[in-house]
Design a protein around this nucleic acid. Structure first.
Lengths: 212, 212
DNA sequence: TGACAATGTGACCACCTGGTCTTACAATAT
DNA sequence: ATATTGTAAGACCAGGTGGTCACATTGTCA
């Protein structure tokens, strides 16, 4: 957590620092990200920075925590209504929400992308601390429940399916981040929806030609 | 390409440099990887290094090219017999070969992993140059052919399926690299085979409960 | 043996890094 | 008016970076 001096700052200045740090950490990994650049961008002196944060790691953890909190907040409403949905609808919602999140908060999504590529073990561990593997746990939970409801075949390997969904999810987000940012992604809504449906159709129906 | 002085080197010395560079580039990304460390590890002077390579980028491209060539060589025999196989068998072979490659050449696989995470656009572009998207092209080609043979349903979105397979492929390799390297992975053959079959079963048969 | 070219060497360069520390300033309390 | 406190500031530090260069060493041919 930052020092209190940081929270005593006028909102504008504090937000400027946060913005600058987010830009830097979504552009470069932990080692390559530069405190000097963040100071320059947010127009504060080096000495001031070290009165707000004890070191680089504290800033990194703080920024990542902000992104994670935002994402949880964004998804919580969707997850709340999960119990009323079939597994297909649950996955669909998860994918679409993920894409919507990346569209609405590309900065946060980019931070997440960068974090997933992070090499520095210390930095990664400091962010994760305890509650990691949430995504995997969530997927597996949904799958097992659907099995019990008889929605999907028992022979499906829950872990394999969970891994598949996770990697697919991140691939889609990465693909989206690549597409957006440059040109406008408006009016692509329909196209994206269709794409998600194609993916889910494969997973649910398989690709093998059915014998009729 | 390295300078001729590099190729005039005795094999031992040249290989030592290559090994050291591979270790460094698979541990750190382009920016963080250190020429000084590579020199120290391979016991050559800084000045000598710059007689073999004009700059860091040349070394990086050279090392990555070696890894790519090795991978292509490794896969080429498998791809040669593709026309005799069904799509399911093709995918299965591709996955198993990929895992075998990561097992036999963890160093090369780690280099590939690091490259997929690379932030530095210049370094990435220098390695890719023209012939990227080979994996995607290969997958799509296989899928389209299988469609024409009537092996899989026409309604399957080729691009979606290709993205699914790619992301799955990298996830499996990443999972394997995480497992191996530390403890021995011997005797895990059966477990890995089963895992691949689970994944392929999902893709081919779907997860939805069949009405009998 | 001597001359010449090729190669090895590490001190050195400018620049950048995360982090410190002394000084300067502003506001408040006495 | 003075002392105390909280903060802004940026010069400075040790250490690392990619890259250079003058010099030492070696090998080869005459």
């Amino acid at each position: 957590m930052p020092q209190e001096t940081f929270f005593n700052l006028p909102n504008d200045k504090r937000n400027l620092i946060i913005t600058a740090a987010m830009e830097e950490f979504s552009k470069s990994n932990y080692n390559s990200a530069s405190i000097n650049q963040i100071c320059k961008k947010s127009k504060i002196a080096k000495g001031s920075f070290y009165q707000y944060f004890t070191d680089k790691l504290e800033l990194y953890v703080y920024i990542m925590t902000l992104a994670i909190e935002e994402k949880i907040k964004f998804f919580s409403s969707a997850i709340a209504e999960f119990h009323t949905l079939t597994l297909f609808e649950q996955f669909r919602l998860l994918f679409l929400k993920g894409m919507e999140f990346a569209k609405m908060h590309p900065q946060y999504a980019a931070l997440g992308e960068q974090f997933s590529k992070e090499n520095d073990g210390t930095a990664k561990a400091a962010v994760i601390k305890e509650g990691d593997k949430q995504a995997e746990a969530l997927f597996i939970q949904l799958i097992e429940k659907a099995k019990r409801r008889g929605e999907i075949d028992d022979y499906v390997d829950s872990f394999a399916l969970s891994l598949l969904l996770q990697s697919l999810n991140s691939a889609v987000i990465k693909y989206m981040l690549g597409q957006f940012g440059n040109d406008g992604y408006k009016n692509k809504e329909e196209e994206l929806n269709h794409f998600v449906d194609s993916l889910l159709s494969i997973i649910f129906n398989g690709i093998q030609k059915k014998i009729k």
